[in-house]
Design a protein around this nucleic acid. Structure first.
Length: 584
RNA sequence: CGGACAGUAGCGCAGGGGCUAGCGCACUUGGUUCGGGACCAAGGGGUCGGCGGUUCAAAUCCGCCUUGUCCGACCA
């Protein structure tokens, strides 16, 4: 491609953005924002995206997946069948067509693919099956941010597996686990796989692929010693308890002590001797009718711990939860600031963290302004369902080996789910087994955010001068920069490189050397050939590697072969680092 | 969904009731320069986010709407 003919150009000024990588992508002319969380891919960004997609295709086909393309617009009926039309809130794009039929902008394709599969799959002889697509999704996120990291419209690779039993699902799940590591390492992105919450997808086992970086919005808890890793939403840790005899409950005067901090100070007791009440309101939606109910959720946790919202939401089996208002708490007979489930009434449910359930003689609110109880005990003084709803933090104890846990921020670039029969049962996707019985198909679903992957690569590979994407995902392999007045030589080398199958960006613009070099650094094509008066006179050309800014001088007569060799070396560097990992 | 800030040339910004709306970058033309974001000169480009109001007069003041950005969504 001749730069003089390129559709987009680079910016002189660095846009001020929340993340370095986003700023570079904008400055280098890879992407352009059109609205909140809505981006266009410009030629360079689109080429990089296609490189990523090609790697994904290869690896998906390697595990036997076939590519399909399903529609972005789905009839709402299939989303009503699974109940997600009701259980997912505003994130799901909805509209009516001209005759008033409810339509959905698909944010994922379990419904669509199951709708197709149920007609295809009639016998166990048809299983297993595996399909994937690379397609646009719409998710109306309440708050898009950080450029391509969190957007509303995005490209996703999603694959769906159909098996006759769990053993089959586990095999294809494992295939994905392995393929994903190959995909990410072939693009050059370092990731780790972590145990995760299955969220709106349902199902049981799931892993997320995380790129560890402070710009991430997920928190990963991991253990250096034994390798335990999990998203904080589900991370476990070891809680320690002291055994004590139960003492009689006692009401005490505690004026102006609404927080655990204050209470701990006033009574001169550690926070671990308190039972903290956290109030949320859960929304519960009936999958069949779409009817909504709300209920106050009273979460009781030891004062030194904090509630993990996703764990609480799962424990309560709520579709969503939000913090409660004071009035809602009072309605159920509890007093904000001095609250406990002792005397709770009305439309509420009590969920008790095991930290409280197995501790004795905790201080809790008396549901009366200015008073608390000493020596409260679960079961004796109040009841509730026991769950682990505590949030794991750095320094807490590893559930597997008892070493201190570490926390880190991460960006989720992929996920894999064992769905089981949730969708097949609801959408009537059954097969007939050897003995003639109708059995629900066992499904899995697997995603990779293509644009987000590019955003993460921009974050990982760049410096103050610009991007330096690995050759496997870089929009071009070679950047030919000519500083010569005459165009013949550069044109000739450009043609020869193209003929040799090299993807080459040719800076044929009438710009100063400084501008050309600055743009070359910014776009960051891995191999740069410079044709300048001095070196050309000596029958040489300079080759500079963007990765480490190393400069090599090559004979002009053999420049094409030399460059082909450099390309091979760059590619080998990535191949040598392909990560092969399997689920144990 | 709550809060704060912003919308003026392609990009980044200034101007805050008054006469022709400016600056830097980018762009056009001519000339000089030519291996790390050159210089001189002359130009082109604007429904001042939209609608309504106040006023002799609105980019400027007021109201509504809209779009964008950041923070929050939270421990009683």
């Amino acid at each position: 491609m001749r730069m003089s003919k390129m559709f987009s150009k680079t910016l002189r000024e660095t846009p001020q953005t929340d993340s370095k990588g986003y700023g570079l992508l904008v400055k280098a002319g890879f992407i352009k924002q059109m609205g909140a969380g809505i981006f266009s891919l410009l030629p360079l960004g689109f080429r990089a995206t296609k490189k990523i997609e090609a790697i994904i295709r290869e690896e998906m086909e390697n595990i036997g997946a076939e590519e399909i393309l399903m529609p972005l617009v789905n009839p709402a009926d299939i989303w009503k069948e699974t109940g997600r039309y009701y259980s997912i809130d505003k994130e799901l794009g909805r509209f009516e067509d001209r005759v008033g039929r409810d339509m959905v902008l698909a944010m994922t394709h379990e419904e669509a693919v199951t709708d197709i599969a149920k007609d295809e799959i009639d016998s166990y002889k048809r299983l297993p099956l595996l399909v994937f697509q690379i397609q646009t999704k719409w998710r109306d996120d309440p708050r898009p941010r950080a450029g391509l990291i969190r957007v509303r419209e995005f490209t996703m690779k999603d694959s769906y597996s159909f098996d006759k039993d769990m053993a089959g699902l586990e095999k294809v799940y494992n295939d994905h686990y392995k393929a994903y590591f190959r995909i990410f390492s072939r693009t050059g992105l370092p990731v780790i796989a972590v145990g995760a919450d299955s969220g709106m997808m349902g199902g049981k086992v799931s892993h997320e692929y995380m790129y560890l970086n402070p710009i991430g919005e997920d928190t990963i808890i991991y253990c250096d010693k034994c390798g335990y890793t999990a998203n904080r939403q589900v991370a476990k840790f070891k809680k320690e308890y002291k055994k004590e005899e139960m003492l009689p409950i006692e009401k005490i005067v505690t004026p102006e002590t609404k927080t655990i901090e204050d209470l701990s100070e006033l009574l001169n007791l550690p926070k671990s001797k308190m039972a903290k009440a956290v109030f949320m309101v859960g929304t519960f939606i009936d999958d069949k009718s779409g009817d909504e109910k709300t209920k106050l959720i009273v979460a009781i946790i030891r004062g030194d711990l904090e509630v993990e919202e996703s764990k609480l939401s799962n424990a309560a089996k709520a579709n969503s939860i939000r913090p409660a208002q004071d009035e809602e708490i009072l309605e159920c007979g509890m007093v904000p600031g001095y609250a406990s489930p002792i005397g709770a009434k009305g439309n509420c449910m009590v969920i008790v963290d095991d930290s409280v359930a197995y501790s004795a003689n905790l201080v809790a609110g008396a549901n009366e302004v200015g008073y608390h109880y000493k020596n409260t005990n679960f079961k004796r003084d109040y009841d509730g369902e026991v769950f682990d709803i505590a949030s794991a933090r750095e320094g807490f104890i590893c559930p597997e080996c008892s070493s201190p846990l570490i926390s880190s921020k991460g960006v989720e670039v992929g996920n894999i789910f064992q769905l089981g029969t949730r969708y097949s049962e609801k959408m009537n996707c059954y097969y007939q087994d050897e003995s003639g019985r109708q059995i629900p198909v066992v499904m899995g679903s697997y995603g990779i955010g293509v644009g987000r992957l590019l955003a993460c690569l921009a974050e990982e590979y760049g410096d103050d001068k610009g991007l330096k994407l690995p050759i496997t995902v870089s929009p071009y392999e070679v950047h030919l920069v000519s500083l010569l007045k005459e165009t013949e030589l550069a044109d000739k080398i450009y043609d020869e490189l193209k003929r040799a199958g090299v993807e080459v960006l040719y800076d044929d613009r009438k710009e100063s050397a400084g501008v050309k070099f600055a743009d070359a650094d910014l776009i960051g094509i891995p191999i740069r050939i410079t044709l300048g008066n001095k070196s050309v006179k000596e029958k040489k050309a300079e080759v500079k590697l963007r990765a480490n800014d190393e400069v090599i001088s090559y004979e002009l007569d053999h420049i094409v072969e030399s460059v082909l060799d450099e390309i091979r070396k760059e590619k080998k560097r990535i191949e040598d680092n392909i990560v092969e990992k399997t689920l144990d």
